[in-house]
Design a protein around this nucleic acid. Structure first.
Lengths: 167, 167
DNA sequence: TCCCAATAGTAGGACGTCCAACCACTTGCC
DNA sequence: GGCAAGTGGTTGGACGTCCTACTATTGGGA
């Protein structure tokens, strides 16, 4: 969290009003700015909860993905597809998890281009602890009831679908 | 955009199902993951639209803030409050805008600790052009009608309020 | 069979964000 | 008046993301 004292007004709403006066319809701009800011808030909260456990949200997501996989292992390119990350981001994350002995890199038995990432027992334990820390703070998502959370998910899923994230 | 081919299924929804089976209620996790991913999509779209004009969304927002200010100038700390950025992020952004001759740094007349940032004429022109590029792509926000966009803004504003972003 | 396009992963660099630490200046209080 | 606490901004480092470029390997078609 940028740890600023809260403003006495909503800066996004104020910017939207000025935009409306000076430029034109501001609804889309306001929505996008809201997404950007809420993401930042959630990222901060989640990372703060994970810091004592030596993880970031990006690395935590990778651990969860591996825990959910059948063998506790996946090729790097599959991880990139599921987490929707650039190959270089996967390399970066796996580097750090490996340095922390939470995952291992192994060669693929038949395709020598492919690197298979396997979660270690330490990785499984770390993931469990981290999951507790995150559920304790509700992933930083505050202020909404169950119906509103479902509504939010539905709206954002529609955006992802329209953007061609999946079909 | 990570430029991956779209998956034939929604990876977030799949993760939520596994979470539900193995860990517990997944609604909050799914909502948070959706926000993270949609933010990433929007950031990519917006930055791609701005790249030909030598801007990023962060720098664009700073330019807009200055254009909207009365004198076209604001102290750095005020910029940080309005954009809800860490002081070091403001320094970084102003550095780059200044290197591009889109803003200037000046001393504050009475408080010598304070640095005042002023937009240049080139900055104003760049902002206009960039705004056109962004409105052309609807800020990357696709798939929602006006009512849904308003609904999304309302939900996210509530999250920001509950998180103590403003009062 | 052999070559070439496609695929998997990595290296290096840019960018934005944050934190910790630091210096300069200002303000408040004794 | 002077010192301590607070404020404003920068520097240096960590992290995650992306892009471009590169190597190694695979697989399909001439």
């Amino acid at each position: 969290m940028p740890s600023h004292h809260p403003l006495p007004f909503d800066p996004i709403d104020r910017a939207a009003q000025l935009w409306q006066d000076r430029i034109g319809p501001a609804a889309t701009m306001a929505a996008v700015t809201n997404i950007m800011r809420v993401q930042q808030i959630l990222q901060s909260s989640v990372d703060a909860a994970l810091r004592p456990h030596g993880l970031t949200f990006a690395r935590y997501e990778a651990l969860v993905l591996l825990v959910f996989s059948r063998q506790g292992s996946l090729p790097m390119n599959v991880m990139g597809q599921r987490l929707q990350l650039h190959p270089t981001s996967v390399t970066n994350i796996v580097d750090r998890l490996q340095a922390d002995h939470l995952v291992e890199r192994n060669g693929h038995p038949t395709d020598r281009r492919t690197t298979v990432v396997t979660i270690t027992e330490a990785g499984r334990q770390r993931q469990k602890i981290a999951t507790g820390a995150l559920t304790d703070i509700d992933f930083g998502l505050v202020g909404l009831d169950d119906a509103q959370i479902a509504q939010l998910t539905a709206l954002l899923t529609e955006v992802r679908r329209a953007a061609g994230d999946f079909s």
